[in-house]
Design a protein around this nucleic acid. Structure first.
Lengths: 150, 150
DNA sequence: TTGTCTAGTCTTATTTTAGAACCAGATTGG
DNA sequence: CCAATCTGGTTCTAAAATAAGACTAGACAA
C-alpha cells in the first residue's frame, strides 16, 4: 500500500506531480521565489514540522530544484537556493496563484498580489501557438506517443 | 495531527494548493482535459483506489471544479464534466507539463506532447506585463497586502 | 429474470504526517 | 573563555491519509 508513484509515466504532468506534487514542495518553492533561503525561515513561515521540512528539502535538493550554498551572511551555515530547474517552476507557481486569486477569494478579500517592478499588476499566463497566437484549451490536444511497455 | 490546511491563507498559491494540491486532484483534472468523464474511466486510467477517487471527485465537485451532468450516452448514469473553474486550471496543467517535459525525461525518452489543432507543438507559457512584454521571475515581485489577523 | 456492469461504500493494513522532545555544532553575550 | 542560546537538524509517537480488496444497490443486456 505504498503511495502510488508516477516517476515512470509517459505523461509529463504525472511525472511532474510525482516529483513536486505533494502538499509542501510547491509551497517551499514559492517561499524560495519570495527570497527565503534558510531552514529556519521556511520552517517559521510555513509552520511546517521540522521533520517534514527536512525530508522535503532533501528531496528538492536531490531533484535539483534547490541546491545547498554557503550562507550569504558569511556564517558557517548553509542556505537553500533555487537552481535553474527550480526557477523554471515559476509559471507553475504563477498559474496556481492566478487560479487561486480568481476563484478562491471572496470579493474584496485580502490577498497577496504579483506585480512587475513598476508595481503594475501582471497579465494572465498565455499559451502561444508556434506562430504566437494565444491558444485556449479547446485549440490543443495531447499527442500520444508510443507507450513504452515495461 | 490533522493535516495542515491553508484555506484561509492570504497567499493565493497556498489557497490553490489547499484546494487541489493533493496527489490526485490535478491528475483527475488532467484526465478530464483529456476527455474522461466517467467514474470507471478515471479509475481505470489512473489506477487509483475507488475510495480515493470517490473522495476526490466529491471534493472537486464541492469546489466547483467538476460538476455532475447526465451521461452523454443517454444512460441513467452521470458524468463528471469540467466547469468554468475547472477549465481555468488549464495553465496550471500546462505549466506542470512543460516543466516535466523539460526536466524529467532523458534525452529521447518517450512522452506525450501538447500540440495545436494542426499538430504543431505549442510554445512555452508566457507571463505578460500589462503592456504585453513577457516577464521573467526577476522582473516581478509579490506585493504583500494587509494580513488580516484572526 | 439471470447475469453483468457501473458506481460507488466499507474495512483493514500500511504509510505518511504533525507535533513535540531531543541533540550537536555554531554563534553570541558577558 | 565560558555559558547560554540559536540553527539545523533527527527521532519518537499518535493521528490521519492512502491502497487495496470485499461488498452492494441499482442500471443494463441477453
Amino acid at each position: 500500500m505504498k503511495r502510488t508513484g508516477f516517476s515512470e509515466a509517459d505523461c509529463p504532468v504525472a511525472r511532474a506531480l510525482d516529483a513536486i506534487g505533494d502538499w509542501w514542495s510547491l509551497l517551499i518553492v514559492r517561499d524560495a521565489f519570495d527570497g527565503l533561503r534558510r531552514f529556519g525561515d521556511f520552517q517559521k513561515n510555513l509552520g511546517i514540522a521540522k521533520g517534514m521540512l527536512s525530508t522535503r528539502l532533501r528531496k528538492l535538493v536531490e531533484l535539483d530544484v534547490l541546491e545547498l550554498v554557503p550562507a550569504s551572511d558569511g556564517s558557517a551555515y548553509q542556505e537553500y537556493a533555487l537552481t535553474r530547474r527550480g526557477h523554471d517552476l515559476f509559471p507553475v507557481i504563477v498559474g496556481l496563484r492566478q487560479w487561486g486569486e480568481a476563484h478562491l477569494y471572496a470579493r474584496g478579500e485580502a490577498h497577496s498580489d504579483l506585480v512587475d517592478q513598476a508595481g503594475q499588476p501582471v497579465g494572465q499566463l498565455v499559451l502561444p501557438s508556434r506562430t504566437g497566437r494565444p491558444l485556449t484549451w479547446s485549440e490543443t490536444k495531447v499527442r500520444k506517443v508510443g507507450a513504452r511497455k515495461r
